[in-house]
């Protein structure tokens, strides 16, 4: 668990520990977001959460801005299949960058 002022000041290695974990993020106004943590933007500390659907395709994404994060709590670990789905997310969506990176 990590509280607000702490969250933005963590190092990339600290944030990396949350990648692929199921977390509950409490944002400004006590609003809570639950999902698989896809990434933390190291520039803004914004948190990208994914809610995976039943089918292989669909999912919804919520992003909590780093400045609004009050608390991040780990509530579960991803199995191998979930981790794979999380890694491949957004990968096919950048045709203008494909091949160059």
């Amino acid at each position: 668990m990590s509280t607000t002022s702490a969250w933005r000041q963590q190092t990339p290695r600290d944030w990396e520990h949350y990648v692929n974990k199921q977390v509950t993020v409490t944002a400004h106004g006590q609003q809570q977001h639950r999902g698989w943590l896809h990434t933390v933007d190291p520039v803004t500390a914004s948190v990208v959460l994914v809610q995976l659907g039943e089918a292989a395709g669909g999912c919804s994404v919520s992003v909590v801005m780093g400045h609004a994060v009050e608390q991040v709590e780990v509530v579960g670990e991803a199995d191998e299949e979930t981790a794979m789905r999380l890694s491949s997310l957004f990968r096919s969506e950048a045709p203008e960058l494909r091949g160059s990176v």
Binding site: V43, V48, L89, F90
Partner: peptide, 9 residues
Amino acid sequence: MMRERFLRC
């Protein structure tokens, strides 16, 4: 790794 994931998002 995390920045690339965020930019792709």
